[in-house]
Design a binder for these strands. Structure first.
Length: 258
DNA sequence: CAAGAGTCCTACATTACATCA
DNA sequence: GCTGATGTAATGTAGGACTCT
């Protein structure tokens, strides 16, 4: 058939990454999936697997016996959390059903440093998990698969947030740079307009440097150093202010800033 | 083949808890 | 010890892709 499950996961994330601005980290998935591409997983093999462990459902009592019970020997469940359970025996906000062993409110365990480190390492290699990887990690870390999944979800979110912040900073700087450029160009235009209005002024000037106009962006290189290092569009066109007649020259320079 | 239901996965928003200053 | 800020585990929801009937 059929798209293999891990490929499905990959295609999903990459597809959505194109529609929105996903982090490029996800591209690493290719390599990771290649690692696992050789493993089994027809739909027939997936189904029973997923049926057995539905990572999306809330941890049932069975799960807790099976996994949560061993889920946090390494984890540091806060000593306060138990007290909270005492504080809010009713479970407060609607999470009253199948919680762990009668404990109603959700407990928030802190992952140990070792667990976090392993997850981080794994995340470096692949930002999404296929079910097999998820299960392997969860076994390795003594966590529920759902916890591994959640960790990756949150990690992706953090990555994206950070990337957004970086992008934002970059855009700010870019904006500032463009503003500065705009100011410079406005000033340049003003000067040129002033020149145009009083041609007699430049007639008394010693033949200065040759003004250089980039034919691509029509920018004037204002000084010698600019000419020495003309911006890199095309071969600059040199315009001598003494060329005849003066008026066309000025007209040629009368360009709006872009 | 098309349509609809069911399943799975994801991003995203939000909540709730843990920790620290 | 209390409190607000911060980090993050966990939850809820919506939407897309796929399979099956």
């Amino acid at each position: 058939m059929l798209v293999e499950k891990e490929d499905l996961g990959l295609s999903l994330s990459l597809r959505s990454s194109s529609s929105e601005n996903r982090h490029p980290l996800q591209m690493n998935l290719m390599a990771w999936n290649d690692l696992f591409a050789s493993t089994e997983r027809s739909s027939e093999t997936i189904r029973p697997f997923l049926k057995g462990i539905d990572v999306n459902r809330k941890p049932s009592t069975a799960d807790c016996e099976d996994e949560a019970g061993i889920s946090s020997p390494n984890s540091t469940v806060s000593s306060v959390s138990g007290k909270r359970s005492e504080r809010e025996p009713s479970g407060g906000d609607g999470m009253s059903d199948d919680e762990d062993g009668g404990e109603t409110s959700r407990k928030k365990l802190r992952l140990s440093k070792e667990q976090s480190a392993v997850l981080e390492e794994s995340f470096k290699e692949h930002t999404t998990l296929n079910p097999k990887q998820k299960l392997a990690l969860s076994k390795q870390l003594n966590l529920r698969p759902r916890q591994v999944e959640v960790w990756f979800q949150n990690r992706r979110a953090r990555t994206k947030l950070k990337q957004t912040e970086v992008d934002c900073e970059l855009m700010k700087r870019c904006c500032e740079s463009l503003k500065e450029e705009n100011r410079r160009l406005q000033k340049e235009v003003q000067e040129l307009r002033a020149l145009k209005l009083s041609p007699h002024l430049y007639m008394h000037m010693t033949p200065p440097t040759t003004l250089t106009l980039c034919p691509s962006c029509e920018r004037v290189a204002a000084n010698v150093s600019d000419q020495a290092a003309p911006h890199r569009h095309h071969a600059p066109i040199s315009i001598s202010p003494w060329a005849q007649p003066a008026a066309p020259f000025i007209r040629a320079l009368d360009v709006a800033p872009h």
